[in-house]
Design a protein around this nucleic acid. Structure first.
Lengths: 332, 332
DNA sequence: TTGAAAGCGCTAACAT
DNA sequence: ATGTTAGCGCTTTCAA
């Protein structure tokens, strides 16, 4: 491996000068700088980031820890992060926790051990994991999912509002028994969207019964099973609000398998879009989220925190909007 | 930051002993080891991976560099990589090159600079990038896309065969003028799938004309535009074989927008599945690939290469299969 | 079995 | 403006 010492010898300067050139310090004589550049090229020198990291105790890498890499919601978010990161001189590495606190914990440990410059995390819900980051003074931004009892920069959407909108839309459309399939209780989005659902029921005098609520896992199969369980209940619903995109797909699959007609007999609204939603029949009504901006905003907060670690943490809440399509409109 | 020196002092041993305990060396007295463990706990010691990396000149991180993080094909592949990596004691970080050789190059540089343990790459097509990896003796596996002139471990699918199958199926179904929308020429999968298409045309005596071929970008919009251009040609096709999932979606969107009836008037077969394909109307016939196994196989190769850098590189070719659904069957 | 000490490649005081 | 040098935290050779 070629080191700055090799370059220094070749260019007849000191290692310090090489380092200065490497870091674009202006305090170096142009002719000397040129000699160093040439030597680097001649020797095909590549800086060793690990040594640099050790010296500076920090990297130019951001870790983005998400809970499901196969969910287009997260991958779209990542694009937003990347674009900002590139601009600020950071590279983004993605870590997939797979909704598994164990894996999440491993990636957090890796981010800490590798001294990454910052972490953007959509947590699987165990607060201790984040605490490790905060205690180690790692710059961290919570995205999509809120952290209880930890005061960190956060980017969210107005989950309660969006869920309320979706549920109200179903009730207003003439569906009577609107069910809700939500995610794990420990995850803030699952809880908040459930709350929005309940709020809409209360304000419209809909039947609020625990029999109409299912807690699933934010995945397709979980949505399918929850839907099946609702249909098999004693008083089955005639509409469902599913609190994420994958579970919505699962629910619709179940309805198709059972031969239930959507939207004629049964209304469906989901949370967050899916790609090629327009090709799906019936096309799905959803609460749409600004996924890309979610990523962008988180990245901006992270960059600011790295630049100024003492800043008071702030929370950005982005708006959601109801996209009405076929699956929730009985009379076309 | 707590270091092994702090732990050593606390446990009344030498730093060397702490290091030995840390690495599970058996040559250390049990009672001493216990004392060290206790001290680590007391001080909440966390090993500094960067220092360790510098000393050993390698990490326990694998970089997986893919060309489109929003393409479910790649994310599914990553799951396969992850499962093997975990088992072998590595963590996987994902890098999204976005089909941009520039970004790809940046991530390759990062993987090199950070001295990652290995790289799995689905290249955007510039051979110099991979050469940098090979020259630096970085363990590397090419996945999905082949590298010309570089002898590295590779995992592919039988692209020519799959494409031939798809095209033949359309011709056999009575479609006459079968077009092909493929990806950038420099990418091996685009070239090979085109070759399979041409081979099928030749063997069945179909009309092989450059007017029926379009080179797009493996993205949805590219597929849309290519389809539009085909339809606007002087002798428009009555069927299309699109060489990846996203372009297939784009092509279908275009057909819908133009009011072309699929499959009655126009046949469509794609390469690689899309999620919730069963919800899409018409459901799409595709050449399916074992995405998860692709990832698994690449990971196994990488682990072997790391363990034994001198091994001769091998190429694994996995099978594809034709999934016939609605979009290519005229008479149901 | 344990400890002392060198050194991985780099940056930044500090000295010149 | 440039050079000398200490040291980031760890592993490992060598000596005891």
């Amino acid at each position: 491996m070629t080191t700055i010492y090799d370059v220094a010898r070749q260019a007849q300067v000191s290692p310090a000068t090489v380092s200065r050139v490497l870091n674009g310090r202006t305090t170096v004589d142009p002719s000397m700088a040129a000699r160093v550049q040439q030597a680097m090229r001649d020797l095909d020198y590549r800086p060793n980031a690990v040594a640099r990291n050790l010296r500076l105790s920090q990297t130019s890498l951001w870790a983005v820890i998400i809970s499901d890499i196969e969910n287009p919601f997260f991958t779209s978010m990542v694009r937003g992060v990347e674009d900002v990161a590139q601009g600020a001189g950071f590279s983004v590495v993605l870590c997939n926790s797979d909704e598994d606190p164990e894996k999440e914990s491993r990636y957090v440990a890796a981010a800490l051990a590798e001294q990454m410059a910052g972490v953007i995390i959509s947590t699987s819900g165990r607060p201790t994991v984040i605490n490790r980051l905060v205690e180690a003074r790692m710059p961290v931004v919570a995205i999509d999912r809120q952290l209880r009892g930890v005061n960190v920069d956060t980017v969210l959407v107005d989950n309660v509002h969006g869920a309320e909108l979706a549920t109200a839309h179903l009730l207003d459309g003439g569906y009577r028994r609107v069910a809700c399939v939500t995610g794990p209780r420990r995850i803030s989005t699952a809880a908040q969207r459930l709350r929005g659902y309940q709020r809409a029921l209360k304000s419209r005098g809909g039947p609020a019964s625990d029999n109409l609520i299912r807690f699933a896992d934010f995945r397709e199969e979980g949505g399918y099973r929850a839907m099946a369980s609702l249909l098999d209940g004693s008083e089955p619903p005639d509409a469902v609000f599913a609190t994420n995109n994958l579970m919505t797909v699962g629910a619709v699959e179940c309805l198709i398998d059972r031969g239930v007609k959507v939207p004629a007999e049964f209304g469906v609204v989901g949370f967050d879009d899916i790609p090629w939603a327009h090709l799906v029949r019936p096309s799905l009504s959803t609460v749409s989220q600004p996924t890309y901006d979610l990523g962008r905003s988180a990245a901006v907060l992270l960059a600011e925190r790295i630049a100024n670690p003492a800043r008071t943490p702030s929370t950005i809440t982005l708006r959601t909007g109801l996209q009405i399509r076929e699956s929730s409109t009985r009379h076309r």
